[in-house]
Amino acid sequence: MNRRGGLWRRFLRHRSAAAGLVVIAALAVVAALAPWLAPHPPDVQNLPGRLAPPGTPGHPLGTDELGRDILSRLLYGARISLVIGIIVVAVAVGVGVPAGALAGYNPRYDGVIMRAVDLMLSFPGILLALVIIAVLGPGLGNTMLAVGIFSVPVFVRITRASILSVRELEYVQAARAAGARDGRILFRHMLPNCLAPLLVQATFRVATSILTAASLSFIGLGAQPPTPEWGAMLATGRVNLYIAPHVTLYPGLAIFITVLAFNLLGDGLRDVLDPRLRAAH
């Protein structure tokens, strides 16, 4: 309890991390309250009023190429981006951590799992995602899956390394000698040890995933219209960049700020949880 309090205080003293957390909390609130905060529904079009500049009455950030309210779409988009970040990381952790634990704990599987990881890493990331989406069909769900799959290797490696570092430690040996089953040893004694590096990496990965998913939406493979995903908003506004720069400006800023917040949070967590980890990532 005492130690935890110390961590928390250290974390709050970490100015940039605290800032990141505040932004993320704000985003979460915005996402949750989007229907109440947004001045308009996100999909309602008004073609005659398209590409209205920021400051137009009723549309503080202007309207897009179909006359939809950009502010409202941004607010709804916050939901999508946060969900993307969380689900992608959940997929990656859900596959990567068990695989990494298995590889680290049981040398029999180590070779196979690590070769598979090498193979995955050697595929160029965004192309791998593209091929996966081509196989499964475009859509937000498949995009999250594809981005999740190519984030798996990082988690395998981290988990395996942490497990390896404690495998021969006394307390694990003691548990084994006491006749504890493998599963119990792994979950009760070894995995908790990986939590800090996993938490740090997961935070960074949320950031990367939001960015990657936005890139995929930008080339038309992510969120399907009319979903107000920020990358997709950028993609459709792109053609009007010259005559209506605001249509791309705000989603771009939204992506930037959100990703930055997660990155700052991850950086702070790393400093606080384990100073030795600074060299990682």
Partner: peptide, 14 residues
């Protein structure tokens, strides 16, 4: 999956 088709699609959808 092209911007012009998506735009047409969105308008017809609405």
């Amino acid at each position: 999956n092209r911007p012009d088709h998506r735009q047409i699609g969105e308008v017809i959808q609405a």
